[in-house]
Computed example of a mutant assay.
Amino acid sequence: MKLTYTYQCHMMNTCRPPSISDLQEQWPFLFTKLWLCDHFNTLTGIQIDSRLTQALLNKGKRIVKFFKSQKTKWRREIQCLLNGIGGNIRCNDDLTFTAAILLLMTHFKEKDESLFLLADGRVVCGLDSESNFTAALSVLFSTFYVVNIEYQESASATLELIKMFLVRINPERTKCTAKAGVSRNTGKVVQRKPLPINPRYTLSH
């Protein structure tokens, strides 16, 4: 895969990019976690699995703690989510990480099915039975960069925050930022203004 990295990039960045089916046929190993994340590492210089694991261990817990500390100030949807989380996440990192992402999506008024799917059909990139939430998120996030596609509008705010706050990718150099997003005020899709950094994510690292 390392020897064919240049050819993969050339194929995915042509004027008429290939379909996912064509990519799977041409580069089947690219649709496994190992080689997808390896391609992402070659592209960005970031070990996505370890970067997200460390970030979620520290910042994921901080996100959940922040929302819990101001529970009464949040709107009903976030309060219901916090009630559902309860004390079940104290000794379960996977639940903590999942809760952090769900809280962010709810805060940005993005529907959880934009990122979380119950797969009952064709799965593009499978994970082994020992994989956890971080592994799944690593594959999801890497795919945007490896296949060179924009974030979907329905989850763009959460993905932007993951990019800058958790993965720590320079926002001025990324190519995956969505041109539109969901307005927190109206819940409708609106066009984004081109900014070097989104003011909503000026969180301290």
Score class of each variant (00 low, 15 high):
I63M: 13
N83Y: 07
C15F: 14
G45K: 02
Q26S: 11
A180D: 07
T134C: 09
T143E: 12
L23Y: 03
T158S: 00
P171D: 10
R200P: 00
A100Q: 03
A55C: 03
S21I: 07
T53L: 15
N198S: 12
T44K: 13
M1N: 03
L166E: 02
P196M: 08
V189G: 02
M164Y: 03
G126L: 07
L23P: 03
L34S: 07
D93F: 07
N198H: 15
D128R: 13
L95M: 09
C9L: 10
Q47G: 06
E172W: 05
H39L: 10
E113K: 05
K65F: 14
I20E: 11
Y145F: 13
T14H: 09
S129D: 14
T96L: 15
L36G: 03
D128T: 04
N13S: 03
L57Q: 11
I63C: 05
I149M: 10
T4H: 06
F97E: 09
T186E: 00
Q70N: 13
L23F: 05
L95E: 10
Y145T: 00
E130N: 11
F116K: 02
A155S: 01
S19A: 08
G86Q: 06
H107T: 00
N148Q: 07
K193Y: 09
L104H: 01
V124R: 11
M12S: 04
R62Y: 11
F165W: 12
G84R: 02
P28A: 06
S138M: 03
Y5P: 01
I85M: 04
D112H: 03
W74H: 15
F66M: 13
G86K: 05
M11D: 04
T53I: 08
K33A: 15
L140Q: 05
L140N: 08
N41R: 08
V139S: 05
I63E: 07
D128Y: 14
D93G: 02
I48M: 04
L137K: 06
L52H: 10
C37V: 09
L23I: 06
F165N: 07
C37Y: 04
I162D: 00
F40W: 04
F144K: 09
N83L: 12
V167G: 01
Q8H: 04
C125S: 12
P171F: 08
P171N: 11
V139H: 03
F144C: 05
R16A: 08
I48R: 08
N41S: 12
V146Y: 10
L195K: 12
T6Q: 15
L34P: 01
R200M: 02
H205Y: 04
L34Q: 15
K179W: 14
T32C: 13
R75K: 15
D49T: 08
D120R: 05
L203K: 04
L115K: 00
K188I: 07
Q26P: 01
F29W: 12
T143W: 06
Q24A: 09
A178I: 11
V167R: 04
S154Q: 00
A136Y: 03
R122P: 10
T98M: 05
S131R: 14
S156Y: 01
T96F: 11
L56K: 06
E153F: 14
T106R: 01
I149N: 03
F31K: 07
A100V: 01
M11C: 05
Y5K: 06
V146I: 05
K68S: 10
E130A: 13
T106N: 00
A157H: 01
T72Q: 13
S204C: 11
L127T: 11
Y7N: 06
T186K: 00
T134E: 02
S19E: 13
E150S: 14
P28W: 02
N83I: 09
S156T: 01
C176D: 02
